[in-house]
Amino acid sequence: MSLSSAVITFPGSNCDRDAQTYLEILTNQDTHKIWHKDVLLPKVDLLIIPGGFSFGDYLRSGAMAAKSPIIDDVLKHAERGGYIIGICNGFQILTEIGLLDGALNRNVKLKFLAKNCFIKKNHENNFNKKISQDQCLSIPVAHNEGSYYNSEEGLKLLQDNEQISFLYCDEEGNTTDSSNLNGSLNHIAGITNKKKNVLGLMPHPERAFQDFHTSQDGQLILESLLG
């Protein structure tokens, strides 16, 4: 399937070029580059909100970016059923917009984490359908505020609606305390919205797909969407 795409850049985004390369190589077509002050998105199938430190993480990570002019059209894109992947700071922005439920707090051990981690699929959706249930993906993380939080009721809704896409695990797929590197609630590494067309995840699949990367597992997420 052919997949058209766009990447939004905010002041302080630093993974927008990586996201663009990830999309262009794997979809084999050009990606639209969008500035946060633009007000209209091109008609695309997939939008990536990239990682970085939008607006210097002032106030809360993603809080300022969530009020950028382009966001109205991001909401319309989601409402139309268009796909969105928010990676790292993109995930934080999506929770601040309200497209994804919950919030991302300071890592429990107060350390900026920049390392490879393992994640596995939990509930199946279009972002992970090419990943088998017992497969562990090795994907890098690089964040300071990645500890997923939701209220008890919020968490129950995520579970009931099967919105929990990815969990942190160890190399064998066990969800141990030590594999939950940032202290996320129930090991949550990535969730979708109720309609399952919007995914937010802390690990960076766009840093794990080329030959020179230490892992190529990140391509499975985009390949799942490509069908």
Binding site: A63, K67, T95, A103, N105, N150, S151
Partner: peptide
């Protein structure tokens, strides 16, 4: 609208 995230 901005200063507080009422979830947390």
């Amino acid at each position: 609208k901005l200063l507080v995230n009422s979830i947390i």
